[in-house]
Amino acid sequence: MTKFASLLFIAGLAFFLMVVTGLLPLGNSPMLIGNAILDSAKEQVGAANVVTSVVLAYRGLDTLGELSILFAAASAVGLLLTKSSFNKPSKNPTNTEESDSGFVAINGIDLIFPLLLVVGMYIISHGHLTPGGGFQGGVVLAIAFAMRSIVRPRGKSIDHGVVTFIEAFAGLSFIVIGLVALYTQGHFLQPMLDQGHFGSLWSAGTIPLLYLAVGLKVGAELAGLILALNTDEVNI
């Protein structure tokens, strides 16, 4: 009965939403700010990838807020799943060799690991030129560490203190770059520094620096999340 009522409700909502989207200008929406940004992004920000200009310059505060949300989630997960919040002692087996994933998986991951780091850093550092950037690269970095901790469930793939330090340092540098802009240029997160040769790696002023901070922050938060969820699995 509940299911039937829910199905009716959803069907009604579906019809309503279809009608509403029928009223929307699909495929040729007004794009008021979109066109303004496309026209001026080249001169104002100097990044070849306009999406990056929007993420880090026009809507930089959104990005800061989003990094804070990741930080809040990672902090909350860390608080929830640390060992101290569980009264039971962990049933961690003393033999660490037994739970490992075998020769092929471990050595394969060890082989890929440095390559993944390079790919991640490449994606981050070319965020203002190509599709990609801090978020995507940060996820690749976090996955590199996650894979190591998956094949060695008992081993320590990354130190918690290092993660804490990187996430604080990256967040700090993002805000400090913004504050320097506030006191030298007059506005928080205003683009600074020489824009360089358009389309080259050293261009777009502070944008690559900001994206590096974002990449490190995202990588550290996701690695921290995976680490916390992974250690707890042992306890349950």
Binding site: I37, V51, S53, R59, D62, G65, E66, I69, A72
Partner: peptide, 17 residues
């Protein structure tokens, strides 16, 4: 339009958190 792409990047990361 570059703006929705930037917005959705933000929204996805929020969702992951």
């Amino acid at each position: 339009d570059p703006v929705p792409q930037a917005l959705v990047l933000t929204a996805i990361v929020i969702g992951v958190g």
